[in-house]
Design a protein around this nucleic acid. Structure first.
Length: 423
RNA sequence: GGGGAGAUACUCAAGCGGCCAACGAGGACAGACUGUAAAUCUGUUGGUUCAUACCUUCGCAGGUUCGAAUCCUGCUCUCCCCA
């Protein structure tokens, strides 16, 4: 199966330029995708692009990941309704480093079609403004640039010359890679079509070369929500930003419909395996085999086996039939990772000698709830657990309840947790 | 500038002298069911030593009254109509 066919059945092709399949007949073609260093980590929205490169490489071609050290300084107006703030050079340098480290996880940098990472700042650094407008600007008309969606949609509200120029800068990237790396293909999200086409246009007019565009669809959730967002914000690839446990949970919680789509896009499982998996899922939907496979596959690829196992263990303990003993088996490090972002309270362990009533623990000491009345209501409603064990109003906390000798896990309902730390 | 309407808890919105901690809807939280889903049903959604009690709340500040979210005065803000 060739690259295009592969992407097609996976639902990863939004649009492509005719003729691209011809070029891709021979292995070893170079193709690139640009990544914006707007943060020191990519989030899972970029995963579609990363997987596209992975497939490209598996099909025997040479993937190039371009980091926008220069374009990041200009700001891509595509899909943006407002002018963006510019990043300073230090931040940009730090971001590039972080993003590069992540990309290195996914691609193979050895062999005949070794992947490559380039930074467009390297060729823009010494290109003067005059050279640029003479050598690049001369080939593209304003009329052409104005016709782009990314520009048209901003005519009402205004757009700086900087962002207006963006498509030329990105176009020049393509031209540069075409000249220096024989790169004929640029891929990207569907919002990149306009920018990519400016590049192919520039290549044709400047050097008479042929270049092609391929875009992937925008990933959406079946319920219309934004992909890759939680209440807490983006789902990041960096474990410092989104813990492997939360990462795993994000994928595990996808709907049945989305899981089928995501399996194709985000895993390397083949068509038969996925079809088989979905059949099994349909027979026993409550086992959520599709989600579990999806979550495990992606977590493993992004964070590695060890982190995946921790996430699985934590998930089992939190959502399985967990006992206080099982909770105690969690390593402190994993425990803290699982409950990262959960409200915590520091409480003096002296209080444990005479014991702390559950109401005091929730309100006076822990400040987890705002009033005693609320605490009593929740207790009466059977909502409160201590170390996964339901408690009533008579419950008294003592030192024998401590996990890892200092933690107590308090749950309110299924999804709200609090941690009391004793020291 | 003239005339009119309004401001109530997270939001919308009733209430127009005592039975008002304030109807109802949405949202949120919880319980049951379930697949850590959706739908559904139920409960809760000012505070207190848990109570047929007390305290604080209906734009702000005063006042009338045994008693005010409700009546009066002033202030602030919002909306509508006319010029």
């Amino acid at each position: 199966m060739n690259f295009i066919e592969e992407l097609r059945w996976r639902g990863m092709v939004h649009d492509l330029m005719p003729g691209i399949e011809n070029v891709l007949k021979n292995p070893g073609c170079a193709g690139y995708i640009g990544f914006d260093p707007t943060a020191d980590s990519l989030h899972i929205g970029s995963l579609v692009q990363i997987m596209t490169l992975v497939h490209f490489q598996r099909a025997g071609h040479k993937p190039i990941a371009l980091l926008g050290g220069a374009t990041g300084m200009v700001g891509d107006p595509s899909g943006k309704s407002q002018e963006r703030n510019l990043l300073d050079q230090d931040t940009l340098a730090k971001n590039i480093e972080g993003v590069q480290r992540q990309l290195e996880h996914f691609l193979d940098f050895s062999g005949p079609n070794a992947a490559e990472i380039v930074n467009n700042y390297d060729w823009f650094e010494n290109l003067s403004f005059i050279d640029f407008i003479r050598d690049v600007g001369k080939h593209i008309t304003i009329n052409y640039m104005l016709a782009k969606d990314s520009v048209k949609s901003r005519m009402e509200n205004g757009m700086s010359f900087t962002e207006f120029s963006y498509q030329l800068v990105q176009g020049y990237d393509f031209y540069h890679l075409n000249q220096n790396k024989n790169c004929q293909i640029q891929m990207g999200g569907s919002d990149q079509w306009g920018n990519i086409v400016t590049g192919t246009e520039l290549i044709r007019r400047k050097s008479g070369g042929e270049a092609y565009a391929l875009t992937t669809p925008l990933i959406k959730k079946a319920d219309g929500g934004k992909f890759g967002k939680t209440e807490e914000g983006n789902v990041w690839l960096a474990k410092e930003r989104t813990s492997p446990y939360k990462f795993y949970q994000y994928w595990l919680n996808t709907s049945d419909e989305d899981a089928a789509t995501y399996l194709k896009i985000f895993t390397l499982l083949d068509e038969q395996t996925i079809a088989q998996l979905l059949r099994q899922h349909l027979e026993a939907p409550h086992l959520r085999l599709a989600q579990k496979t999806l979550a495990a596959d992606i977590t493993q690829r992004v964070h590695g086996t060890e982190e995946l196992n921790n996430a699985l263990l934590a998930t089992d303990i939190l959502f399985g039939k967990a006992t206080a003993e099982a909770l105690g088996t969690l390593k402190e490090e994993v425990f803290l990772q699982v409950f990262e972002g959960v409200p915590q309270a520091q409480i003096s362990s002296d209080l444990l000698h005479k014991g702390i009533s559950i109401v005091d623990l929730l309100v006076a000491e822990g400040k987890f709830l705002s009033s005693n009345g609320e605490a009593r209501r929740e207790i009466k409603a059977n909502a409160i657990t201590v170390n996964k064990v339901r408690v009533d109003e008579q419950f008294i906390l003592t030192s024998e309840h401590l996990l890892n000798e200092r933690y107590v896990l308090i749950g309110k309902g299924k999804k709200n947790n609090f941690i009391a730390v004793f020291n």
